[in-house]
Simulated assay, not measured.
Amino acid sequence: MSYTIKDVAKQANVSTATVSRVLNGLSGYSKETEEKVLRAIKELGYMPNAFARGLVSNKSNTLGILFPEVSSQFSSKILRGVEEAAHELGSSVIVCNTASQGQRTMKYLELLSEKRVDGILFVSEKITEEYYKQLKSMKVPVVLVSTESYQYPLPFVKVDDKHAAFTATDYLVKMGHRKIGMIGGNIEDVIAGQPRVEGYKQALANHELSIKEENIKHSKGFSFKDGFNSFPDLIKSAPDLTAVFAASDSLALGAVSSAYRLGIKIPDQLSIIGYDNLPIAEMAIPPLTTVAQPLEQMGKVAAEMLFTMMSKGIIVESRIMPHSVVERESVKRI
Results as ranks from 00 to 15, higher is better:
228 F>G: 03
228 F>I: 01
230 S>A: 15
230 S>M: 11
231 F>R: 05
233 D>K: 14
234 L>S: 13
234 L>R: 11
235 I>K: 15
235 I>C: 10
235 I>V: 15
236 K>E: 14
237 S>T: 14
237 S>P: 10
237 S>M: 14
238 A>V: 08
239 P>W: 11
240 D>A: 13
241 L>M: 03
241 L>R: 03
243 A>N: 06
244 V>L: 12
244 V>S: 13
244 V>H: 12
244 V>F: 12
245 F>S: 11
245 F>K: 11
245 F>E: 09
246 A>Q: 05
247 A>K: 01
249 D>H: 09
249 D>P: 12
249 D>Q: 08
250 S>V: 00
250 S>W: 05
250 S>F: 10
251 L>V: 01
251 L>Y: 01
252 A>Q: 06
252 A>V: 05
252 A>L: 01
253 L>H: 09
254 G>Q: 04
255 A>R: 06
255 A>C: 08
257 S>T: 10
257 S>G: 15
257 S>R: 14
258 S>D: 07
258 S>Y: 08
259 A>K: 09
261 R>Q: 14
261 R>W: 03
263 G>T: 10
263 G>M: 08
264 I>Q: 01
264 I>L: 08
265 K>Y: 09
266 I>K: 10
266 I>S: 04
267 P>C: 07
267 P>K: 07
268 D>A: 13
268 D>G: 00
269 Q>S: 06
270 L>C: 02
271 S>F: 07
271 S>P: 10
272 I>E: 00
272 I>V: 05
273 I>A: 10
273 I>K: 04
273 I>R: 10
274 G>Q: 02
274 G>K: 03
274 G>L: 02
275 Y>I: 04
276 D>Q: 13
276 D>V: 14
277 N>W: 11
277 N>D: 15
277 N>Y: 11
278 L>M: 15
278 L>H: 12
278 L>Q: 14
278 L>W: 11
281 A>V: 02
281 A>S: 15
281 A>F: 02
281 A>D: 02
281 A>I: 01
281 A>Y: 03
285 I>W: 13
285 I>V: 14
285 I>C: 12
286 P>N: 10
286 P>V: 09
286 P>R: 07
287 P>I: 14
287 P>N: 12
290 T>V: 09
290 T>G: 10
290 T>L: 08
290 T>M: 06
291 V>M: 00
292 A>N: 07
292 A>Y: 00
293 Q>T: 03
293 Q>I: 01
294 P>K: 13
294 P>Y: 10
295 L>N: 13
296 E>L: 05
296 E>W: 02
297 Q>L: 10
298 M>N: 03
299 G>N: 03
299 G>R: 02
299 G>Q: 04
299 G>P: 06
299 G>W: 04
301 V>H: 03
302 A>L: 01
302 A>K: 00
303 A>L: 01
303 A>I: 03
304 E>I: 07
304 E>R: 14
304 E>Q: 15
306 L>S: 00
307 F>T: 04
308 T>K: 12
308 T>Q: 08
308 T>S: 03
